[in-house]
Structures are given as structure tokens and as C-alpha cells.
Amino acid sequence: MQQRDAYFDNIKVLLIALVVVGHLIEPLSGSEIFRPLYLFIYSFHIPLFVLISGFFCKRITSGDYRIKVVGSLIVPYLIFETLYSLFDYYVLGAQKLRFSYFTPYWLMWFIFSMIIWKMLLPYAVKIRWALPISFAIAILAGYAADAEYYASISRTIVFFPFFLAGYYLDKADVDRLRTPLMKGIAAVILGMAAVIMINYGNGFRTEWFYGSLPYRDLGHPEWSAGIYRLAAYAAAVLIGGAIMILMTGRNIRGLSRLGRNTLYAYLLHGFLVRGLIATGFYEVYGDTRWMLLLIPFGILLTALLSSGFIRSRFRWLLEPKLDRLYKKQDADEGAEVQR
């Protein structure tokens, strides 16, 4: 069995913690205290998560590639899209029970888009200059007024270049960049990004980092609006690249293992976040500095939901066994697939 690379597990732990913390502080993202942190998180964590996901999709020629998409993504998507709809209606008191499988519920967009990215990847890599073409399409998509939330179309297009870049990424190239000089430059980049977010964050619209709205809805109907998306891409590359250079490759006891179960933290934490919003928690305590405790709380919640304990209890739901769903493949058919 191939040994896991602790480097990527460490990055995944960091990124899923940022996802959880980002969602916990999202209702307070307009406040002076939380806005710089919220902007910093969203400037890079989605593109970097997408890139890492693409990195682990190199076996696109394997016979069970599409079958794994069904078991690891499509079935969990259908299950949790249903559960979140039921949660909204029976627990949060939504006026109407609505199952919106083609308009993903809140955080479920990532799983929906991942399904599309994985199914599209084997065909995209056959195109010459696929990566620059995908960036060009993503820039142009912002001019389409109807590229929004339905079928997660806007985000799927906007973040696909990072998924494709992850597929092309060679870990050896990353290792060559992780020199003392580059680590110093990376630290400076992160410091400068933090200063910019703190001092000028009020002038930024976070929606530019979401990738979900056309330029017109972001207040820029002019022909040159694509420059703003280019700027968002540049921020993601610089800050995300700095994180990759600085990340340790050591196996950190009790921490690196959590990187194996990030899907559990991603899909499960939303119930708690939505519950806090529905109970009026943020309206009652939102103006107090006690809310800073949401940051360590989010980190601890990430550790809990990514633990082996949670995986053992919820594996039947997130990793269902679907062997009986597929026909048995005979030897001749299997050999044909491998050709």
C-alpha cells in the first residue's frame, strides 16, 4: 500500500478548519473584528481546496474512476442534499419542504461541482492548452447574466481551472519551491495580505471570491469587469501558493490523520452552523467580543468531526457500500477496460 503524504493531509486539515471557521463567522463578516479574517480566508481557501482535490484525480484512466464518483460523491450528495432540506423544514421551520437537487443547498455546491469536475476531467485534459482555455472561459462567464446558482454553474466554471491545475500539479515541483528563500517570500506575502485585509478590507466585496455571481450583480457591468476576476485569481494564487510553500510535510501526531476525514467535517458542520443562525445566537451575542471564541470553537469542531470516532459512526452514510449496485465485471470485459 502506498504511504500517505502527510503534506497534503496537513493542508487539508488547515483548509477544512478554515471552511468551518469561515462559516461560523460568516454572519459577522461585516463587523470590524471579523471582516479582515473572513476576507483572508475566502481569498484563497476555496481555490486551494479545489486544486488539492484535482491533484488526487490523476487516475482518470482507471476502470473504476466513474464508479468511485458515484459512491464517493453522487450518493453522498443526494443523501445530504435531502437531509439539509429536511433539516430546514422540520428543525429550522422553513415554510416549504423543497428538494433542490439542481440548485445545491448552501455548502452542497462544492460536492455538486466536484461531481461535474471529475466527470469532465478525462475529456478536458485531451484538449490542447486546456488550462489557459479554462481560465479564459471562467473570465468570460462573468459577463453572462444568467450564470448564477442554478446547477452551481458559475462556481463550477470559475473554479474548474484550479481543479485542472491540481491535476497537472507535480508534487516534486512544489518541493523544489519550498526552499528557505521561498519560505521567506511566502511569509512576506501572507503578512502583506493580512495588512491589506485589515486596512483596506472595507473596500472589497467578498462576493468576488465566491465565484457565484455575474459581474453585473457585483456592480460592474462595464466591459473591463473581467479584470476584477483576474485580481481575485491572482490573490488566490499568491496566498494559496504561499500556504503551500510554508506547509510542513512532517507527520504531526494526532493532527495529520484528521486530513483523511475532511469530507465528514465538511458535510456535518453545516447542521450546527445553520442551527446557531436559526436560534438567534448571532443576534444575541454578535456584538460581544466573546464571539472571538468562535475561532477556537471552529478548530475544535473540525478536529471532532474529522476524527476516527465520527468516521466510524457515520461511515455508512458518507461512504455507503454499493457493491450490489453494480454488475459483476467478467475477465474479458475487465481487460477491455484496461486497454
Rank of each mutant, 00 (worst) to 15 (best):
I299N: 06
W316Q: 07
D64Y: 04
Q338N: 08
A138V: 01
N261L: 00
F271I: 07
V50C: 09
V188Y: 00
S53I: 05
W129C: 11
H269Q: 14
L304T: 11
V174A: 05
S134Q: 04
K118D: 06
N10I: 09
G308D: 15
I157V: 15
Y101I: 10
R59S: 15
G203Q: 14
F102A: 10
S212E: 15
L120G: 03
E32G: 11
K321A: 13
C57I: 00
E26V: 11
K58T: 09
G203V: 02
G191A: 05
T288R: 11
K68P: 00
A141T: 05
A187G: 14
W117C: 10
P320K: 00
L39D: 12
G142N: 09
I299L: 15
K183G: 10
S85R: 05
I227T: 10
L238K: 02
H220F: 08
F112H: 10
I127F: 02
L258G: 09
P296W: 03
L28Q: 06
R178V: 06
L190N: 06
E81M: 11
I74M: 13
V21L: 07
I79E: 04
D173T: 04
S224V: 09
L51M: 14
A193M: 10
L48F: 07
T248S: 15
F159C: 08
F281G: 03
I196K: 12
S212R: 08
P122G: 05
R289K: 11
L230G: 15
E333G: 10
L121N: 05
A130L: 01
A331T: 12
L73M: 12
E283W: 04
H220C: 05
V20W: 07
P296S: 06
M108D: 10
V188H: 01
A136V: 12
Y285N: 10
L293G: 13
W117Q: 12
E81Y: 02
A231I: 14
L293I: 07
R35K: 14
G286V: 08
E222C: 02
I33F: 10
I79V: 15
L73R: 04
D5C: 02
Y101F: 15
V174D: 09
V91D: 13
L24Q: 10
V91I: 15
P180G: 04
E207P: 01
S224M: 09
L213F: 11
L305I: 02
R313G: 03
L164D: 08
R205S: 12
M197T: 12
G211W: 07
I25P: 07
I25F: 00
P296H: 03
R257H: 08
R98S: 15
A138Y: 02
E148I: 05
D173W: 08
P132Q: 09
R274P: 10
Y210Q: 04
I185C: 12
L263H: 01
G270R: 03
A187R: 00
S312A: 14
L325E: 01
G63S: 13
F40V: 06
Y210A: 11
Y149P: 00
R339H: 08
M244G: 06
G201M: 08
Y285L: 14
D64E: 14
Y77G: 01
V13K: 01
E26N: 15
E26T: 15
F55S: 01
I133G: 05
V19C: 09
L78Q: 03
W117H: 13
M291C: 09
A236F: 08
V195S: 07
V13P: 03
I52W: 01
P214L: 06
R315K: 14
M108I: 07
